[in-house]
């Protein structure tokens, strides 16, 4: 048995005749951060709800930490923390009271609960506003309180649905730090998002959803190779005569694209930066910039869906 915390096989969800989730296979390992990406309505939230046993499964099977969410939802929900899309708390209660209610639902003994609540609030930097009513909280603070709930629960798996949507850059950064913090203590994190560059920075692996199917799955680099083609893209900015020609003459360069304003995108089968520098300078040009282009998830995403649309 592998060290998977979530295993889905042929997971299917039908709403009438539409296949909201179309027979997907998914494995999430212990201690990794896994990103579910895709446009709205692609089936990410439905998949999450099926994993949690919060909506019925039309076909296939899921196994979460060795439990079946259809038959043993209580066991699953005891071990899995869930942060729904734009999470809500009881506005008339304080942060601490909200967590206390959850602790009671989890049947955590009272003495234990107070300590765990205090620690959880501390870990998301809400300790000083723990006795304020949640009505006064900003969206970012509510999301952090949601993370605190998962910390208090001591969940083995955290499922976060669009955790960063609607947050300002600073709050997003803080939240992602907290998600990394969850990983550090050994929690497997499954998060869905359409904020790609943010997700890219935390996710170990991602799955790209399209129309209820998983179109692509793997690490960001793997995905980039698949969609953008294998190759080593670099950006060259230089002044001089016939830079493009010079670049094309370098061994290993496959493609040179004019990116405008004295810049070129070079795709090669290896790292050709040293050769590029040498040739540009020796041909009398002045090199102003030479950058290694990391494959961006956004590019992968955009390109993939462009191609998918063309194919359709």
């Amino acid at each position: 048995m592998s060290d998977n915390v979530i295993e889905a096989r042929g997971l299917l969800k039908l709403y009438g005749a539409t296949r909201a989730v179309d027979a997907i296979d998914l494995d999430i390992c212990r201690g990794e951060i896994f990103g579910l990406l895709g446009p709205n309505g692609a089936g990410k939230t439905t998949t999450i709800l099926m994993i949690l046993g919060l909506t019925e499964i039309s076909g296939g099977a899921v196994n979460v930490l060795g439990f079946n969410p259809v038959r043993q939802p209580l066991e699953v929900k005891r071990r899995v923390g869930y942060l729904p899309d734009s999470v809500g708390f009881y506005d008339h209660l304080t942060a601490r009271q909200n967590l206390r209610y959850t602790a009671r639902l989890l049947a955590i003994p009272r003495k234990d609960a107070e300590k765990r609540i205090a620690d959880a609030l501390e870990s998301v930097q809400l300790a000083d506003v723990g006795d304020h009513r949640v009505a006064t909280f900003s969206r970012g603070m509510r999301q952090r309180l949601g993370i605190a709930e998962i910390v208090m629960k001591k969940a083995e798996v955290a499922i976060l649905d669009e955790p960063t949507s609607g947050l300002d850059p600073h709050a997003t950064h803080e939240l992602l730090e907290m998600i990394r913090g969850l990983k550090k203590v050994g929690v497997a994190v499954l998060l869905s998002s359409h904020l790609l560059d943010r997700v890219q920075s935390v996710c170990d692996r991602v799955a790209l959803f399209n129309n209820g199917k998983i179109a692509l799955m793997g690490t960001v680099v793997e995905l980039a190779n698949k969609v953008l083609g294998a190759g080593h893209p670099i950006l060259v900015e230089a002044q001089g005569s016939d830079i493009a020609g010079t670049l094309r003459g370098i061994e290993g360069v496959q493609q040179v694209v004019d990116a405008g304003e004295g810049a070129w995108r070079v795709i090669a089968d290896r790292d050709v930066r040293a050769a590029v520098a040498l040739r540009v300078v020796s041909s009398g040009g002045s090199l102003t910039r030479l950058a290694d282009l990391q494959p961006s998830l956004e590019e992968v995403y955009t390109r993939y869906f462009q191609e998918a649309r063309h194919a359709a």
Binding site: L54, P73, E75, K77, R78, Y82, V87, F89, T102
Partner: peptide, 14 residues
């Protein structure tokens, strides 16, 4: 409407 339902139902209760 306050979006507390899914959070509460994700706790171990039916």
């Amino acid at each position: 409407n306050h979006r507390t339902l899914s959070r509460v139902l994700s706790q171990p209760i039916y």
